[in-house]
């Protein structure tokens, strides 16, 4: 094998920060910006708000970053199939509530978590069928599903938060090797999805369907299965995030998921996964989730309220998207 191939075959997503552009110059790849930006952000935090990079402060931020990263992972998978899953809000809430209800009935944390996740996965399949089979626009189908899920949660909870079983709370607060479980789970999810999409037949076909469903069908791939599968994967991600979140806060409610809908989409956008399908990186989305969480922390530590946080987040999205478009915009002149 010659040198060219060796260079080219280094995994551009997980390994190196650089890839060779067509002109032969070295420049940042589209999914690598976020690493640099996140490193820069922590550096900046250490200078302007040293309080946010202490152990205690990081520990307060990381569980939420982990949960956001898991939701963003699910959203990335769907966006890779040119979709969008607006039912994440309802799904996150529902999973927490279901885990609580099953938890009290069964005493087994594993069973209750599996049952809650399984139900969400089934709902995800319904989403997928509505979108891929009945050709309802993803936005509309998942919005409607979201409304229905919120209804279910309200029915189950009677509009009042339900407290979570002790064992799930303990699990959510536990840490391993000094890092919270939610972070480990986020890393695990991202790792699995990244390995599957990059290194397995299933994942490669999944990417192909996202890039061009018609080419995939002509190549003998059952595109429908992958399109529906995306919503199943996202539902599982949302469910796990929802259970972790409820465990961490200590209770589950019908509003719990609202805080993870738009921020997760924002994380995907900041990470660099385009809405046009196919290409995408769950690793970048995960790092972007960390970026967004730390950004909030830093802004908060600097004494600004939620308004400035929003402002800064909007600026981050704008910067992230225009930086990637800049070369194209300049070339089109």
């Amino acid at each position: 094998m010659n040198m060219n191939i060796a260079v080219a075959s280094i995994d551009k997503d997980m390994g190196t920060l650089h890839k060779r552009t067509q002109s032969g110059r070295w420049s940042l790849g589209e999914f690598s910006w976020i690493w640099v930006a996140t490193a820069g952000l922590f550096l900046l935090s250490a200078i302007v708000a040293p309080g946010t990079v202490t152990k205690g402060s990081l520990f307060a931020m990381l569980p939420f970053a982990g949960i956001l990263a898991i939701v963003a992972t699910g959203q990335t998978v769907v966006i890779q199939q040119r979709g969008l899953d607006m039912s994440s809000a309802g799904m996150v809430s529902l999973a927490g509530v279901l885990a609580a209800i099953f938890g009290y009935r069964s005493d087994s944390m594993v069973l209750s978590v599996l049952a809650a996740t399984g139900i969400c996965a089934f709902i995800g399949v319904i989403n997928g069928v509505l979108i891929a089979r009945a050709h309802i626009t993803p936005l509309v189908a998942t919005l409607a599903m979201n409304a229905a899920l919120i209804g279910v949660v309200r029915d189950l909870t009677g509009n009042a938060p339900v407290s979570m079983p002790e064992n799930i709370q303990e699990f959510s607060h536990a840490d391993l090797g000094g890092l919270p479980y939610s972070l480990w789970l986020a890393v695990l999810f991202i790792f699995i999805v990244a390995i599957v999409t990059r290194r397995t037949v299933l994942g490669r076909r999944f990417v192909a369907v996202g890039v061009n469903p018609r080419t995939s069908i002509a190549a003998g791939i059952n595109a429908l299965r992958y399109q529906i599968g995306a919503y199943l994967v996202s539902a599982v991600c949302f469910a796990v995030a929802g259970i972790l979140l409820a465990g961490y806060i200590g209770n589950a409610s019908h509003t719990a998921g609202n805080d993870y809908l738009l921020p997760a989409i924002a994380a995907v956008v900041v990470g660099g996964t385009p809405f046009t399908g196919g290409r995408g990186s769950v690793v970048a989305s995960g790092v972007a989730a960390l970026f967004m969480a730390q950004l909030s922390q830093m802004v908060l530590a600097l004494g600004a309220g939620s308004a400035v946080q929003l402002l800064v987040q909007a600026a981050a999205i704008l910067l992230a998207t225009t930086i990637r478009l800049a070369p194209a915009l300049i070339h089109s002149r």
């Binding site: 969008l84 809405f275 308004a307 400035v308 929003l310 402002l311 909007a314 999205i317 225009t322 478009l325």
Partner: peptide, 26 residues
């Protein structure tokens, strides 16, 4: 002209406007 996906573009404005509202009336 900039070419963002309409959902992304108006999500940015969504956040900007909400931020301005909250700055004016916390």
């Amino acid at each position: 002209p900039i070419g963002l996906h309409p959902m992304v573009a108006t999500l940015v404005t969504f956040m900007l406007l909400q931020a301005v509202s909250l700055l004016l009336r916390p």
